[in-house]
């Protein structure tokens, strides 16, 4: 089962330690994580359900390009790392 980790800087606003969840795509895994941490959804996704502009997701170290549908496949033991983008200074 994929393991999802959340941005360190998010922890001060909402507690969300790493979780292991079911899910064959990034979307499915994140939705499963949001069941555990419902308040985290609005911090990572905008009102349309897309990744916020300055949030980025890596699957086993590879950046996810499908930021709107989040249909990138994830393997059973994948590491899904959610980070804040380093944009600006």
């Amino acid at each position: 089962m994929p393991r999802v980790t959340f941005p360190q800087v998010l922890q001060r606003h909402v507690s969300c330690p790493p979780v292991t969840v079911d899910g064959a795509t990034v979307r499915a895994a994140l939705e499963a994580a949001f069941v555990i941490y419902p308040e985290v959804r609005g911090y990572l996704l905008d009102d349309t359900g897309a990744l916020r502009q300055h949030v980025t997701v890596f699957v086993d170290g590879v950046v996810v390009r499908d930021r709107t549908r989040l249909q990138t496949r994830v393997a059973a033991g994948a590491a899904i790392d959610v980070l804040q983008a380093l944009s600006g200074g």
Binding site: G42, D47, T48, A50, R67, T68, R69
Partner: peptide
């Protein structure tokens, strides 16, 4: 926080 309802024909935001 207020959330904008999405119309059925609206796609997620895309750059």
């Amino acid at each position: 926080a207020p959330v904008y309802p999405q119309l059925p024909n609206a796609a997620p935001r895309k750059a």
